[in-house]
Design a protein around this nucleic acid. Structure first.
Lengths: 203, 203, 203, 203
DNA sequence: CACTAAACGAGACGGTACGTCAAGTCTTTCG
DNA sequence: CGAAAGACTTGACGTACCGTCTCGTTTAGTG
């Protein structure tokens, strides 16, 4: 979705555009964010934007990514899977609370409901790495006997992250450290190997 | 949000407007849905729309509500809380899959990320009843000793519904019956009273 | 070309648009005249212009016509055809010299070289009446024996007006009264009935 | 207006540019003719055009001149001034009818109404020679007693060419041989020395 | 039953932003 | 080092909707 054409492109302009988009989005809101406003703020022609990005959401996605360079792929592995996930989720949830990422991320998730291409790009560039790392960590814990091995690691990721996103997107309450810890604890109580005898059939 | 003014209002036009909005939204997508299009399709003047609704999302919310008259407040209580939630969530998730509700609901959730008033209206009119009923059912199970009583019922609702919404909104995979059952089973394994000895919160 | 749709139209806006077009054309020139400028100057939305006129030239044509309400169809007939044409041509040539008509008329003639529809509209609304009146006057003089009756009246009109327009459009010298009189005298010397013996064959 | 800078200039490119301009003007019309289109068609960078010409009209003027190398300065002088002018005007009017010159010439005359520099260049490079030659021929005829010597030769040129241009630019009818001959005959009837007794100026 | 007042369809209005296009300038790259 | 290629800022284009505002025309509901 970004820089499809690797040819001679003014990186200064590109940065100014992404910066203007991020700032304006925070100031006026995603709905009132427009290409003209971004161009004016960035001191750039509209064409220069249209030349390199197909839509305002693509610009914001670029901006969001560059604001999220931390805690990406280095999933902690201390041996204690529960503690590791607490650490990781708390870190990941910064994106949902920091004022320079939260509104943009929420807006993009909202827009992605209407834009399959954006949804795909977000998955590819924003989430797939994190989810893959989490799945790996879970598999590792399963091999170590810490987690029931009959459960799909993807399901466990959903159980862990789902409540956070649900609270954030539907209930509009940003996730706090306490809340995350309780959630992770409760989920792991259900997936821990020690409770392998838990009812696994359906009713 | 709707019919705040109880004065003489043409119910035929109102129905035509809501119907036109629902149909057009499915046909052209929420983004390209516009008041002019709705008015034209409904054979109605634009003023008639603006007189009774403040925005396209308000119209869609009215339409979505009237398409969701089923399975609202009658939460089952068979004594088996796990089975009851499976039943209820499967029913509730129809909204996330039926083609006459899913796109509108997703669009509204997306739009609500930018519109606090809409978010509030959706909570009030769409979700609060369901969540309250679920909370009640959980409290009942807690009193019966089926669920650990040290857990906030709201948290449990999040654990149950969160993964579903996460899968739907973020991963864009509609929830299936199997998936729901597994999710509910796994969550209840963690919240069941029998696993009360599970670690309930370390640092 | 103007007001094709007679429906409810704001005449105040229409007047403001035509006035703004005339004024701006004089101030910045026809080439730099644009719909946006006219709209801004007239305090009007662009749509209101596009609704009633297809192009800037159509607006100017309307404006030019309303500035030329004088000396239209009342061709003088004093019995002296030469004097009558002097009177009439001098009057008609005001359009080519008055600062509130000359630049617009020149611009429209220029634009008409690239726009057959405009050319047609100008002929129909601007010139055909005048030419028809002149032809009538010539026919009358022919019946009275003042002008050779073997000559096409249209040719005589060309001989009379052609040099004026040529001087104006090609040589860019505005026609003066003396010049017009000399031209008319010289042409009538060639078409007068008294010189009927003039060589009429070709070489 | 053209090649002011005599430095190393690629004559192949120059020719390609002029050719492209002429062709494109005929194909898409003067209004839609643009520098970008010319550059693309000529396989040339835009800068190469801007380096040597200030505007599209300057390119077309160059092109038009090179397409009019015939019948320029060699005004016939057979002794019969009427026949000579018939010959000359018919030749000159080829420019107004040939499909490789007529549209460009009309476009340039139209554009010159808005561009004094272009108007000047056209007079200097296109017309002044022809008019000077015609004036010379008329002076010669006056000295020979064929034409009234009290008339300004310039006026006679206007009388001869004016009707042609008027018919072409205003009435949009290309000049035909018959029409030219009749016009010339009638004009000369008025200016011939034999009709010197014609009224030469009353009030 | 006429009268009045509103809600209605229609759509013109002043605006704003869209995405496209070309202008003329500037920079990079190649022959 | 001139020229091709083309990215750049600028700004107008014509379109599409916005939300507001008349218009006449129904249509209730009241006097």
């Amino acid at each position: 979705m970004p820089s499809r054409r690797p040819e001679r492109r003014n990186e200064e302009s590109a940065k100014a555009i992404v910066r203007a988009a991020l700032d304006l989005c925070r100031e006026v809101g995603y709905d009132k964010l427009g290409i003209e406003g971004i161009a004016a703020r960035a001191g750039v022609g509209k064409n220069t934007i249209y030349r390199w990005w197909p839509s305002k959401s693509a610009i914001l996605l670029d901006g969001l990514l560059s604001a999220m360079t931390s805690a990406q792929s280095d999933f902690p592995d201390t041996g204690d899977v529960v503690a590791d996930f607490k650490t990781q989720i708390v870190a990941a949830c910064e994106t949902l609370t920091r004022p320079d990422t939260a509104p943009h991320y929420a807006a993009l998730i909202g827009a992605a409901q209407q834009d399959a291409e954006l949804a795909n790009a977000m998955w590819e560039r924003l989430l797939s790495h994190l989810v893959a790392a989490a799945v790996d960590r879970i598999r590792h814990a399963q091999r170590q006997g810490q987690i029931r091995s009959d459960l799909d690691p993807d399901l466990i990721v959903e159980l862990l992250y789902g409540p956070i996103y649900y609270g954030w997107l539907i209930r509009h309450s940003p996730p706090g450290r306490e809340h995350i810890h309780t959630t992770v604890d409760t989920v792991f109580a259900g997936v821990a190997a020690s409770s392998a005898e838990a009812r696994s059939g359906n009713g």
